[in-house]
């Protein structure tokens, strides 16, 4: 459990400065690339060397670290600066392992985002990078929960970041993870084909045990591996029983449905467990699909709780709850890595 105090987000939508989720940015060529800001908060000499993932991660992280002292930095990223990795690999093979400059190699180090944030802000505290594909950010949250259990006075920067690189896109597309027909993000959920629309982005949070003035409270999370839809539904039911009393209904079920018809059965099974009174909303048409999209789901959950509203294009089903106090997020990646997050408005009770 922890409280979320400040957030920062870069995505395909305007989320970094003035947030506007009402006027949806359309996908472009079946992709939802991040709208990057100018990054006035990154030292210019460093910014020049950074690839997208580093820029997005350091940019969102610095937006929060400029105003907050933290006791550590915990980042989730499945691929970090994969464009730099493959650029370096190409140089190795194109030049038959000749002498290379180390820039792309150092920049593609997976813990470069957490490391640079620590270096720029002189933060000698805990510094971790989780890279477990579709559960990288969930492990970040679990790590933060444990760090705060161990050190209740501490405060941490946590976040999730991933980029679409041209070459990585090729490989994921060949593996069948993306739509092959042209689809707009507006129509993502109406498709009856496999694959989703790729996205990218970064979301960062300041978390601690201070209840006052918190945006939201993360009450619980659960991480699950390969399971059948029936078993996921049973786990969700148990998760809700364990963490919610009868007087604490779920107002919003935020679903990671991504238009890939192979995985629809998981979301359908969970919607059944949630029941007819809860509003259902989806977010992958805003963010696109990627390994750490759940970090953006957490950001959206916080935003909905804060503004007490959900953009109409995100709503799948309107329940009969008044107010927006509790959000349950369910996400899965490739149908193999699943997670639940239970989020509550403000400091909670």
């Amino acid at each position: 459990m922890f409280y979320i105090h400040q957030t920062s987000c870069i995505s395909h939508q305007p989320t970094f400065h003035e947030v506007d989720l009402e006027n949806l940015n359309r996908s472009d060529n079946n992709q939802l690339l991040a709208v990057e800001p100018k990054y006035s908060n990154i030292p210019i000499g460093q910014l020049r060397r950074m690839g997208r993932a580093l820029r997005m991660g350091v940019g969102t992280g610095m937006q929060l670290l400029e105003h907050n002292q933290t006791d550590g930095i915990i980042i989730g990223t499945a691929n970090s600066g994969i464009e730099d990795s493959i650029t370096f690999l190409n140089q190795i093979l194109d030049y038959q392992e000749g002498r290379l400059t180390p820039t792309n190699f150092v920049q593609s180090t997976f813990n470069a985002i957490a490391g640079l944030l620590g270096m720029i802000t002189k933060n000698t505290g805990y510094n971790a990078t989780h890279v477990h594909r579709g559960l990288a950010f969930e492990n970040v949250m679990l790590d933060a929960i444990m760090r705060l259990n161990e050190n209740p006075e501490h405060s941490y920067l946590i976040g999730g970041v991933d980029e679409i690189s041209v070459r990585n896109y090729r490989m994921e597309a060949m593996a069948g993870w993306y739509k092959t027909e042209e689809v707009s993000n507006l129509d993502l959920y109406q498709t009856e084909t496999p694959g989703s629309l790729p996205g990218e982005g970064a979301a960062m949070f300041i978390v601690n045990h201070k209840k006052d003035e918190a945006i939201a409270k993360l009450r619980a999370i659960q991480l699950l591996n390969v399971l059948e839809p029936k078993a996921i539904a049973a786990q969700l039911s148990q998760f809700m029983q364990q963490h919610l009393s009868d007087t604490e209904p779920i107002d919003l079920f935020l679903s990671g449905e991504n238009g890939d018809q192979r995985f629809f059965k998981y979301y359908a099974a969970c919607e059944k467990v949630i029941g007819p009174n809860t509003t259902i909303a989806r977010f992958k048409h805003l963010t696109g699909e990627f390994q750490t999209a759940s970090a953006l789901a957490l950001w959206l959950g916080c935003h909905f709780l804060q503004t007490q509203s959900i953009p109409a294009h995100a709503v799948k089903y309107i329940g009969d709850r008044n107010g927006l106090n509790r959000v349950l997020v369910y996400n899965n990646y490739h149908g193999e890595q699943h997670s639940f997050m239970l989020l509550e408005r403000g400091g909670g009770n």
Binding site: S80, T109, F110, N111, A114, N127, A128, T129, H130, V131, H132, R133, L135, A136, N139, L142, L223, L224, N225, V226, L227, E336
Partner: peptide
């Protein structure tokens, strides 16, 4: 997958 591990799984890369 090979062992059907159900508990928390994770991968670290801190160099």
């Amino acid at each position: 997958k090979r062992y059907g591990i159900q508990g928390i799984t994770d991968t670290f890369n801190t160099a």
